[in-house]
Design a binder for these strands. Structure first.
Lengths: 358, 358
DNA sequence: AAGTTCTAGTGTAACGTATTACCACGTCCA
DNA sequence: TGGACGTGGTAATACGTTACACTAGAACTT
């Protein structure tokens, strides 16, 4: 193992001098000395030991990222975007799959802390963070992704999310505009802030349009163990099958995310339903699979790339204490992306014919 | 920051004793002492500093995992499985998205080394590892995933993969058995060991059946920059469109992986082709999306869970020097999973009608 | 009784880097 | 001429943990 002192010996200088070179403090150093050190570094192919460096400095240039599951393409994509952003700032990212399990989340947080990681992006957004607060030391900075945060929250120091409520309302309004009144909702357990927001948004928009909500059309997966995000598509399939075998099935369904919607597409097909003729489906997220589905999925787009950029820069700014940040909590606007999985219900009078052409 | 000596002070013992407790060496320790230490740990909510711990021991309980892209569900799933396996052995996993970029791969390897990580699972399988060898120190252990390794290779110390050749042959034989003779192949650049194997397997099987290969049906994505695994579906879409607009288009296509196949499904549909009536599609991997597609995808299954288990255990065994390992290089059998994306070509005489019922 | 082994610990030197205090040597100006 | 200052560098210490050598006292053995 080649260390800083090997370099020093080779260059004929002291370790501190080498340290100064590595850390760019060579302003008032003789050019010849500088060059000798650099040559020695190159010749020995020396890599600074990140561990030792950090034991000393107390912090490490690594961010933690806790997500429900990278097996879900949405989170896979987000993870990748976040990693890329972080890299540009010289940080690495430690990805943790917590499967929406509070115990696992707490364990990861504790373990990240033990690894001297002081900045964590929380991708899963459990409703309550109380189970985490005791594992979050004061010197840790937690950024929430996909979660609006109440001001005065003491554990979350910054957050970036899409307006969940608005997104759900856009989706619902789109369906109502097409003439649907029996609109279902498919989701996993409402155990996260984002899901709560989406369901609430849908309810609000239905109410605004004077459509009474049939609670039997709100399908929520049982809160069974082992059903993390990896099974989202499967849950969507099960959900739509239950809804469609109801006495009075829905003519449209809003899924809490695209993976559920993809599962819904599949489940509906199994029962002989055509999408969109017999059933309209709207998703959420706009993962890249959405447009490749059959039919291409109408969905609510989250600007994942922008969101990744914002969380990472805000979190790192806070960690490094760079200037004051204007607004640590940002909420972005989601967009409705109309593709081919939605249309007017069979025999309905379309109240907003303009949607037909999109 | 509460350290081991705070615990020691509180429990009224020496640091060594606390260290012994932490590391489970309390065999010959008085029960009362043990309990006092444990109480102190709990009271102070002490977490061992993984960094310091490791600076001392020289190694860290973290594995590196270099994958093309977690945005691809296959790798997302594999990452998750590997992480779960590793965790059971007390290891964490550092996931690195290298986008099949040799430069990035080398950078990651170097950075992992700088973080004292000595065990790395290489998910991307570039044909040549020469660009990596100079960044791989002798004390690093590299496990290859999805890559058969020649014996005597000095940089790879263990490997787990599926027999790529056999998988491709199963797929090809299936199509030939259905009566197809104009069989296309869709893939990204053949820059990896696994892709080479799959193409070779297809060629071999075609030859064995006396079917001449039309080279114009072998579609390989251009080796353009920015086209990593995140765009696999998109590439599949483009590929099939080019093949289907040929003067004499194929009646079936074998895709290098499921994401390409999903893209192919979408591209074929855009051109008015029905799958499987007008075009049979076979994928590779059997990601969980395969069975949710329309139509459900016939594919070659890789036992990802078993593979994850095997790489992790082999790699950790080697790192820890546990006993000698029987066989560091294991090759598993892939399976053909027949679903609904394949059938006999229109008007063909089926030579193996048995496939029809599956 | 003296020697030996065992028990239940203790004390301390590393691990590789960063930081702080410090020093030697010139130069410049009063 | 001497001291303040700038330059280029050295030496010592600390970071939190572990490994290893060590010991005080008790319990055996001969």
């Amino acid at each position: 193992m080649v260390g800083i002192k090997d370099v020093a010996a080779r260059a004929g200088v002291s370790v501190s001098t080498v340290s100064n070179v590595i850390n760019g403090r060579h302003a008032k150093m003789r050019a010849e000395t500088l060059q000798r050190v650099q040559a020695a570094i190159a010749e020995l192919n020396y890599t600074p030991n990140a561990v030792a460096r950090q034991l000393q400095s107390g912090h490490i240039k690594t961010l933690g990222l806790v997500v429900p599951s990278v097996a879900n393409p949405f989170w896979g994509n987000v993870s990748q975007l976040i990693e890329k952003e972080a890299q540009q700032r010289g940080y690495q990212v430690m990805i943790c799959n917590a499967e929406r399990d509070p115990k696992l989340e707490a364990d990861y947080l504790k373990s990240l802390y033990g690894s001297s990681i002081r900045g964590v992006i929380l991708g899963s957004s459990p409703l309550s963070l109380s189970h985490l607060s005791e594992h979050i030391s004061k010197d840790m900075r937690i950024a929430a992704f996909d979660r609006k945060t109440r001001a005065g929250n003491d554990v979350i120091s910054c957050s970036v999310s899409v307006d969940q409520d608005l997104g759900a309302r856009l989706a619902t309004r789109h369906l109502i505009g097409l003439g649907h009144t029996r609109i279902g909702f498919i989701s996993g357990p409402i155990g996260t802030a984002s899901r709560t927001g989406r369901l609430a948004g849908m309810r609000a928009e239905m109410e605004r349009s004077g459509i009474e909500i049939d609670e039997s059309l709100i399908w929520l997966a049982p809160d069974a163990a082992g059903f993390g995000d990896s099974h989202a598509a499967e849950l969507g399939r099960i959900g739509i099958r239950e809804l469609l075998t109801l006495d009075d099935p829905p003519t449209a369904v809003f899924s809490v995310n695209d993976m559920y919607a993809i599962g819904a597409l599949s489940g509906a097909r199994e029962l002989g339903y055509r999408v969109p003729e017999d059933l309209s489906v709207v998703g959420f997220d706009d993962i890249y699979l959405a447009k490749v589905m059959h039919p291409p999925l109408t969905t609510i787009r989250q600007p994942a790339d922008l969101m990744a950029e914002l969380v990472v820069s805000r979190l790192i700014d806070q960690l490094e204490g760079t200037d004051e940040i204007a607004e640590p909590h940002v909420v972005l606007r989601p967009d409705l992306v109309v593709r081919s999985s939605t249309t007017a219900p069979a025999g309905a009078i379309r109240s907003h014919p303009r949607f037909h052409t999109q």
